[in-house]
């Protein structure tokens, strides 16, 4: 099935995905995504009976809500591109 996606729609997706797509690539990216959506659209024609959305009988797995010391805590902060003491530095969020 063929599908189309406008440049405006792609820009909207890019905003939702927090992903800057350069102006010059918008046309090509829109075409690629339309092709992929056209390919997966085949599932629309598949008729399913009264299926439960998920029949896999999955159960939740819980563990005890207990505190464990984490030796690598400091290392996890260190991998942030900008950090200071025990904090990750982020740009101002509220203008």
């Amino acid at each position: 099935m063929s599908k189309t996606l406008t440049v405006e729609e792609t820009k909207r997706l890019a905003t939702l995905a927090r992903l800057t797509v350069p102006e010059g690539e918008l046309e090509a990216v829109s075409q690629d995504i339309a092709n992929i959506l056209g390919f997966v659209d085949t599932i629309q024609s598949v008729q399913l009976g009264d299926q439960a959305a998920d029949s896999s009988n999955l159960t939740n797995v819980f563990r005890e809500d207990a505190v464990h010391p984490l030796a690598a805590a400091h290392d996890l902060i260190e991998v942030a591109p900008l950090h200071q003491d025990h904090f990750v530095k982020v740009p101002k969020v509220i203008e």
Partner: peptide, 9 residues
């Protein structure tokens, strides 16, 4: 990037 955008869609 394509897969992130398709997933978002």
């Amino acid at each position: 990037r394509r897969r992130i955008l398709v997933g978002t869609y």
